[in-house]
């Protein structure tokens, strides 16, 4: 289900903060070294109560790419994590606006990507305009790297090769 806008939220309650922590700690299904919070795809958690006291939890995720196939697995994982925390009525919705960008990846997320051998994205330039910033090899640290393909193992990554150590590596491309 896709809705237009992230719902407006009242100030976050203590329970919402706790559920956001639980949902945010869920690892990304394709890049399990980073959590959904670090990747910046968890937009919000909202708890509402029906007149009979029934509690419903609504989680908003935003996809890195419109067609990201991981969003289904992410939703399932978030639902499971919140059920284990004791929430029985959990709805996970996908929001598109404002669009996710690689600037939404946290500093911790960037560090963990690099440690896992994936060069983190640089600051956004102008979309697909060729970058002048050097991209560092996550294996040996050299900046002498070249682009093999703008498209790699997942939609969000490009394939590069280090001309110093010869290793190919994934680069989280700027979006």
């Amino acid at each position: 289900m896709v809705t237009r806008e992230a719902a407006r939220t009242a100030p976050e309650t203590a329970l919402e903060r706790e559920l956001r922590r639980v949902a945010g700690a869920v690892p990304d299904p394709e890049l399990p070294v980073v959590s959904l919070a670090e990747l910046g795809v968890l937009r919000g958690v909202r708890v509402t109560y029906a007149p009979d006291g029934h509690r419903a939890v609504r989680v908003e995720l935003t996809p890195t790419y419109t067609g990201c196939p991981a969003i289904g697995a992410m939703s399932d994982d978030v639902r499971r994590a919140l059920r284990e925390q004791g929430q029985s009525d959990v709805e996970v919705v996908t929001v598109l606006a404002p669009p996710w960008s690689t600037d939404d990846i946290s500093e911790d997320g960037r560090r963990k990507l690099a440690e896992a051998g994936i060069a983190p994205p640089g600051p956004r330039g102008g979309g697909a305009v060729p970058l002048s910033l050097a991209i560092r090899c996550p294996h040996c640290g050299s900046t002498a790297t070249e682009l093999l393909s703008r498209f790699s193992s997942t939609a969000c990554k490009a394939l590069r090769r280090c001309t110093s150590c010869g290793e190919p590596f994934d680069h989280f491309k700027e979006l």
Binding site: E5, T66, A97, P99, A128, R150, L175
Partner: peptide, 20 residues
């Protein structure tokens, strides 16, 4: 309009398609 959120998201992607 109703296409604005999708279009904003997808334009980032199509930028790469056009470059390719």
């Amino acid at each position: 309009g109703p296409f604005a959120p999708l279009a904003a998201k997808a334009a980032q992607e199509v930028d790469y398609h056009l470059d390719h």
